[in-house]
């Protein structure tokens, strides 16, 4: 892996304002400027309302900045339309959420297959890859279980398998350990670290988890929409 040779995310003077010009105007991000190297493990920390989830949503192409520019793998997301953004989300980004966000009517296997099918993989190919990813996550015997039949840790591993489905460049985690017990949380972080180190995925997490320092190689500290600290863990 040519880790660290290029920037996978670049944010230049990013502002995010909700309801601009109105009474209830909220400035969420204030002149954010940073670059993330490919293959890095970055954590974004900060108190509630500091704008860290909004920043993650922008990196995840779910939101566009109000001003400034954000480049994902060299592409200026401000210039892309809805479908192009969707394609980038599918191809280059894998999401992991605090609430896992698995689709409850689908089995573990089908949840992963869905991500592959959306990106145009054939049914057989999707099933094959989904199965091997879930096996890699230690869920080989849980393929046909629905989320309600799985523990929190297992659900999060299904979600990670889904995030990896289309072999993205970046994995974004929004409090991925927020809903699971300490021990399982540790395992999830170890898994992410493994994926980062051995497979070269760029990992960006928003978290409150105090153990994160152990895993990250860089931590950005946000307060009131501004970066107050940016450095090695």
């Amino acid at each position: 892996m040519n880790k660290g040779n290029r920037y996978i995310v670049k944010a230049e003077n990013v502002f995010k304002v909700y309801n601009p010009g109105q009474e209830n105007e909220v400035k969420v991000l204030n002149n954010i400027d940073f670059k993330i190297r490919e293959g890095g493990f970055l954590s974004i920390i900060g108190p509630s309302g500091s704008g860290k989830t909004t920043l993650l949503d922008i990196i995840g192409c779910l939101l566009k900045p109000s001003s400034g520019r954000v480049f994902i793998d060299g592409m200026d997301i401000g210039k892309l339309d809805d479908s192009e953004l969707a394609r980038i989300r599918g191809k280059k980004i894998g999401f992991i959420f605090q609430q896992y966000n698995l689709i409850h009517s689908l089995t573990a296997l089908e949840n992963v297959v869905l991500a592959l099918r959306i990106m145009g993989k054939s049914k057989q190919e999707a099933r094959r890859r989904a199965k091997s990813l879930l096996e890699m996550m230690g869920l080989g015997k849980r393929l046909d279980h629905t989320p309600s039949q799985l523990s929190g840790g297992e659900q999060q591993r299904v979600a990670i398998a889904r995030a990896l489905a289309n072999d993205p460049k970046i994995i974004l985690g929004d409090e991925p350990t927020g809903n699971i017990d300490t021990k399982t949380g540790e395992k999830i972080l170890e898994l992410l670290k493994h994926l980062n180190r051995e497979k070269g995925y760029t990992i960006i997490l928003v978290t409150h988890d105090p153990r994160i320092g152990k895993y990250s190689d860089r931590i950005i500290h946000l307060i009131d929409g501004e970066i107050v600290k940016d450095g090695k863990a």
Partner: peptide
């Protein structure tokens, strides 16, 4: 709603 949000997050376009 949430499920639709998930589908969009994992790459589904509005058309899909």
């Amino acid at each position: 709603r949430r499920e639709i949000g998930v589908m969009k997050a994992i790459g589904a376009t509005n058309g899909m």
